[in-house]
Design a protein around this nucleic acid. Structure first.
Length: 787
RNA sequence: GCGCAGGUGGCGAAAUUGGUAGACGCACUACCUUGAGGUGGUAGCGCCGAAAGGCAUGGGAGUUCAAAUCUCCCCUUGCGCACCA
């Protein structure tokens, strides 16, 4: 009986061997090799590897293994983005410590990841919740603090009532919490921010030089939202024509100034807030305005921005604004269709040129003045540039995160925790993790004691932790130097690896992780801590694997595919290869998981297995007897070329189909003559990145290869001259329609091809009685008669 | 509303970048093979048609000897932004 392809045994065996041999451990420099940094987004330790992780990690491994065989010193690191809310939720539910929950999950997921057989360098593993890691997160926070890029301010911030924490703008999608989809409300709170807005222009303009897919760049451009416009000052006057104040409005259409028939300010507008409290104010309807602004505050983001919502507003009575162009006195309104945090928080309303202003003007019977734009406006206002991007709100009222290394003196003034006190540890003496609107850390006695002991009596800790996106904004730097206890990562080592050559990830990070990391890297560059201004030179976004029903996999739908189960049945090589075969990897398409497709790949591998067994029974001399026919040689070199190029371009699907075609051909040949051994060897090398366990097994069975891993072999090279074939098929068309075809030698002359075509009965049939007006000849391809 | 990316058999998809549309795989059909099977093999498989042939890449127009590919208009799906002045 023939030996069966026992994936379980083989995969286990080689995973162990590779680990023991440190096969994928990467040195910082190997003589004669260029460094190459391939990165996948490190996972959150949710406790279970799902099929999405396989798609995210196993498929890029094909690329990585190929690069390694092509002679690069490739770093392919892995770690865990370990801080985050799910740990706390699990802790509340199961009454265990978030730390224990997280580290148990990490241990389990590491095992699962091992079963993938990826060529990860585990020696560089980072875990963001390790004090050795978050020490440096805190250190970087302090560097940004010193530089003035971290600041605390009171502001209207997004608050998720379910997660009981504030959120950054990027983490609010359609007015809902990105994590739990609860409607976000606004709260007036004092919070820590990063001044990402200082980098708006650089974040925007540096996009041009990046080798990133256009949709990501476009998403970031939209998010940064640059617009050039003008700020124009309107004088405010009382009923007695006294000038009381002025309002700056922002407009991109300063040329329509003459048509501005009223002015609108946002409810949050600072001057208005003060004026309401000012007893000497000229405003005569203060309580009405107060009511209106209070109403606005209580609205959720969704209510306030609902498209269908009718615009509302209140006129500010007792004062008027003066249109600087026309000199006319116009009314002033407060309305929530004007946003407090964009532009100046005030606009000039031009109903004749703006739909929103028109809608408002109609509702409140405000004048609509037709005007001719395009007049010179130099004397009014000054040119300004505005961005939609907001500063990055970084504090979170949660436990399981990196502590903000700040303490408050008895006057409440913040002070940085000095460097020598880092890591500023997350307190351990918390019993209740249930969210109460304040970080659970506030209940820690240890932390209070620690602060008083270290800094003095009545000093207070900062209880908030950092947004976990900070942990992931610099982890790729740490991989270059993961065990350094003197620096977050040495500049010298980072120089060897960064910027990341290829970054594989998902589209959900377009305006979050990718933007944050770019900001961080630029800030670190300005601090002289990194060598370049952009962290990732080439990025690609993969698609999504759907459930069997074509829907997004989710527990509630019950359509989740468990990779462990499938791997058990068909093996890691099959699962990996199937995921690579499902479609082009660099398109954000959606692919339903299909058991039939898995079967197809498994069959392919079984056929390779059988072929190798046939080969095994023969002596080396016998195997090599077969001289390659020029046709097979052409096929082989064409396959090498195609597979090599496809992998470079993430087209793993067509790379695999090309290998299938070659195998079909090899099977055919092996039936009628002896097995072409060299060809099969080369074929195995091409297979190695896709099915690393099987390729290794079959490779090492040959005595000649004893003790030498196929993954250390050199990637096959193709010879362009061997790809050229002797014969080609010439298609004969009449008026562009195919009527016949014939085989001919490559390089056949137009004259010969034409003569040959005209001799064919199928062509004569169509040409009798017709006059040939023109003949188009495409060398080696087409003869087209136009009649 | 603005922007980006798509739309090709029953399904996932290919197409040398303007030159034989549907490679490869799945599913399906027929036959052969093993004692049997969810095994292995051979052949077929876009649609209409008995055939000759005709029609087909979301729809419509155009450029061209030749269009999935280029141009214009429309429909549609997904994603991003969005009362951003």
């Amino acid at each position: 009986m023939q030996e069966k392809y026992n994936h379980k045994e083989i995969e286990k065996k080689w995973q162990k061997k590779w680990r023991e041999d440190n096969l994928y451990k990467t040195s910082d420099k190997v003589k004669g090799k260029d460094n190459f940094y391939a990165l996948v987004e490190f996972p959150y330790p949710s406790g279970n590897l799902h099929i999405g992780h396989w798609y995210a990690f196993a498929v890029p491994d094909i690329f990585v293994r190929t690069k390694r065989m092509q002679g690069f010193n490739v770093m392919f690191p892995i770690g865990f983005d370990a801080f985050g809310l799910p740990a706390e939720n699990a802790a509340i539910k199961n009454k265990i410590n978030p730390r224990d929950w997280t580290y148990q999950n990490i241990a389990y997921m590491e095992k699962q990841l091992q079963s993938m057989g990826n060529s990860f360098d585990w020696s560089r593993k980072v875990v963001t919740s390790d004090p050795e890691y978050y020490k440096w997160t805190q250190w970087l926070f302090l560097k940004l603090y010193e530089k003035g890029l971290t600041y605390k301010k009171k502001a209207f911030v997004n608050w998720c009532p379910s997660c009981n924490t504030v959120l950054a703008n990027e983490q609010v999608k359609d007015g809902r919490c990105e994590r739990c989809e609860t409607e976000v409300v606004q709260k007036d709170l004092e919070q820590w921010f990063f001044k990402i807005t200082d980098y708006a222009e650089r974040l925007l303009s540096d996009l041009d030089g990046l080798k990133w897919p256009e949709p990501i760049k476009e998403a970031q451009r939209n998010w940064i939202g640059k617009s050039e416009g003008t700020e124009i000052s309107f004088q405010l006057i009382s009923s007695s024509k006294q000038q009381v104040a002025s309002i700056n409005v922002f407009t991109t259409r300063a040329d329509t100034l003459k048509g501005a028939t009223y002015v609108v300010i946002a409810p949050e507008y600072e001057w208005l807030q003060k004026e309401i409290l000012n007893p000497k104010s000229e405003i005569t309807n203060k309580s009405e305005i107060q009511n209106y602004t209070n109403q606005t505050k209580n609205k959720t983001e969704i209510e306030r921005t609902n498209e269908k919502k009718e615009k509302t507003g209140v006129e500010i009575k007792g004062i008027k604004a003066v249109n600087p162009a026309s000199g006319e006195e116009v009314s002033i309104w407060v309305a929530d269709y004007v946003l407090g945090n964009y532009g100046t928080g005030a606009i000039m309303a031009v109903p004749s040129h703006d739909e929103r202003d028109l809608e408002f003007a109609k509702k409140y019977n405000l004048p609509i003045k037709e005007i001719t734009p395009d007049w010179s406006l130099e004397k009014f206002g000054k040119k300004v540039t505005k961005y939609k991007l907001r500063d990055w709100l970084l504090s979170r009222q949660r436990y399981w995160g990196c502590p903000i290394p700040v303490v408050y003196d008895p006057e409440g003034k913040p002070h940085a925790v000095p460097e020598d006190k880092l890591p500023w540890l997350l307190p351990d003496d918390i019993k209740d993790f249930a969210p109460k609107g304040e970080s659970p850390i506030a209940t820690s006695k240890e932390l209070k004691k620690r602060v008083e002991k270290t800094f003095g009596k009545d000093w207070q800790p900062e209880y908030d932790t950092m947004d976990t996106f900070i942990d992931s904004s610099w982890y790729f730097n740490r991989y270059a130097d993961p065990h350094n206890d003197k620096e977050f990562s040495s500049k010298e080592k980072m120089k060897k690896w960064l910027p990341v050559n290829r970054y594989f990830g998902g589209a959900e990070h377009n305006t979050m992780h990718l933007l944050y990391s770019r900001f961080f890297h630029k800030a670190l560059f300005d601090l002289g801590l990194v060598n370049e201004t952009e962290p990732f030179s080439e990025r690609m976004n993969r698609g999504l694997i759907l459930g069997l029903d074509g829907q997004k996999m989710s527990k509630s739908r019950g359509n989740v595919v468990d990779p462990d189960e499938v791997v058990e049945k068909v093996g890691s090589d099959t699962v990996k290869m199937y995921l690579a075969f499902i479609g082009p990897y660099n398109e954000t398409g959606q692919y339903p998981w299909d058991l039939g497709g898995v079967v197809g790949i498994r069959r392919f591998l079984e056929r390779i297995w059988r072929m190798s067994l046939e080969l095994k029974d023969k002596s080396l001399e016998e195997k090599k007897l077969q001289a390659l026919s020029s046709q097979l040689s052409a096929s082989l070199h064409r396959t090498i070329k195609k597979v090599t190029e496809d992998i470079e371009n993430y087209k793993f699907n067509t790379a695999i189909s090309t290998m299938m075609i070659l195998l079909n051909e090899l099977e055919h040949i092996s039936k009628v003559s002896k097995m072409p051994f060299d060809t099969f060897e080369t074929f195995l090398k091409l297979l190695a990145p896709f099915a690393p366990h099987m390729a290794e097994e079959l490779w090492c069975r040959e005595d000649a290869h004893l003790g030498k891993s196929i993954h250390l072999e050199e990637w096959p090279r193709f010879d362009e001259s061997k790809i050229r074939e002797e014969n080609t098929v010439i298609v004969v068309q009449i008026n562009g329609k195919i009527r016949a075809q014939f085989e001919a030698k490559i390089g056949i002359s137009e004259e010969k091809a034409r003569t040959k075509s005209l001799e064919m009965p199928d062509i004569q049939k169509w040409l009798t009685g017709a006059e040939i007006k023109k003949v188009i000849f495409v060398p080696n391809k087409i003869v087209n008669f136009v009649v």
